[in-house]
Write a protein that binds this DNA or RNA. Structure first.
Lengths: 222, 222
DNA sequence: CAACTATTCAATAATTTTATTGAATAGTTG
DNA sequence: CAACTATTCAATAAAATTATTGAATAGTTG
């Protein structure tokens, strides 16, 4: 009886640990974070994460074996996506834990943002209240595909590359809030840095689009 | 610039992975789960998890290095506790993920509960609505110390060991709901099994006391 | 069906993780 | 302060994880 109990517990915790181990790797966390934007091919994932194709594939196999991702075949390409929303939510909870409780993590983010004039970031709740009153322009600094799959209503899609050319169309009387994929995505930081240096009033949103969506807030697609 | 961006991401995901790796081990998950009941000494943890003292201590060092647990010295004993509530919440989210999405996990739990007449379990919400209407008796099947640190209001503390002797004091007209530490804790299963075999109407609560508390529901101490 | 493309597989070496053992340490108690 | 207790440390061997390389595979296209 006591033995049976131990066997049950051993198996249960082993299975859970197996799943968590599949997450517990920097590369795979980056992949999970990225797939929060929607499905991507192996090639795209490798490109975005600066990994070799073979290594990317291997990590994807680990995630697939743990039922964390699913695939869709389209022509020569295989598209990977998160197997369900709960996976991104768990990642979000863990990321939150790290951001709030690890001193090293706090320092890392602070140092990075300090150099890029993005220390004064705002969160989703703050954005929501400001959107009502102030003349705020929300900028979505992600690739066009991701913008199309869903974005904050009223936001304007400009990538970091396009931004310098489009500066003259922006008014200096407005306040800009740039967002991208999430807390570890740096597109918004780069955009804010460019804007602030040119004399615009700009801040980044701490969270990204996935957090907006998971919060149940309305979003537009095209 | 691109390089700096990569270095930032590498460091960020590495730090997160380090923390998650500290969780991603069956023994350490069991420790985290156990510490959800409140602080315990190394000896107690080793006893509850059937590990050697040295091995337990080693795993505790890993958890401490990741800032997941804190210590309190009292006499010769060192008491470990979770460093904050968010850690148990994250564990809960991950456990949920596994319970809902891993076929192996579902089978494991089902097989175990089938043998113990605890397949027909109820969850906290169901218990709450039944507590209002029916003549339900809630049994807390945990060690007395844990009961003292907090329990569902009105619940009666009976351990598995004590139960057979106390059966005659229980009425067959009531319905019994047994709870313990959480989904992987088997005290409640054992209690329900004994009760059902003796002709009582009994079910287990799927969740345990930590889930009750984290939900913000009222609890009694003493 | 041959050439091509995206992805996976297999083999390897380097690194990390784990449990076990027994010794060392910090702190308490008589 | 000597004996004792709970915990940690250190050394080890076995097992697992990781990135790299190049070959193999599945599927598409002309």
């Amino acid at each position: 009886m006591e033995l049976e109990k131990r066997i049950f517990k051993d198996k249960a915790y082993f299975l859970l640990a197996k799943m968590i181990k599949a997450m517990a790797n920097p590369r795979r966390l980056e992949i999970i974070d990225l797939l929060g934007q929607g499905e991507k091919s192996v090639e795209e994932i490798a490109g975005e994460t600066d990994m070799s194709i073979a290594n990317t594939s291997q990590h994807l196999q680990v995630l697939k074996a743990a039922n964390l991702v699913e695939i869709r075949r389209a022509g020569n390409y295989i598209h990977y996506r998160l197997a369900h929303e709960g996976i991104y939510k768990s990642w979000q909870a863990l990321r939150e834990l790290g951001l709030e409780r690890m001193a090293e993590m706090e320092k890392l983010v602070k140092d990075f943002r300090e150099k890029r004039n993005t220390l004064e970031a705002l969160n989703i709740d703050e954005l929501l209240s400001r959107m009502k009153s102030k003349n705020i322009v929300v900028l979505d600094i992600r690739p066009a595909v991701e913008f199309k799959n869903g974005h904050i209503p009223g936001s304007i899609n400009i990538t970091v590359k396009e931004l310098p050319a489009k500066l003259k169309k922006l008014s200096k009387n407005k306040e800009y809030v740039a967002y991208c994929r999430g807390p570890f995505c740096v597109f918004a930081d780069e955009a804010v840095n460019i804007l602030v240096k040119k004399g615009f009033k700009a801040k980044r949103l701490i969270e990204g689009f996935p957090e907006w969506k998971i919060k149940g807030l309305p979003f537009e697609t095209i």
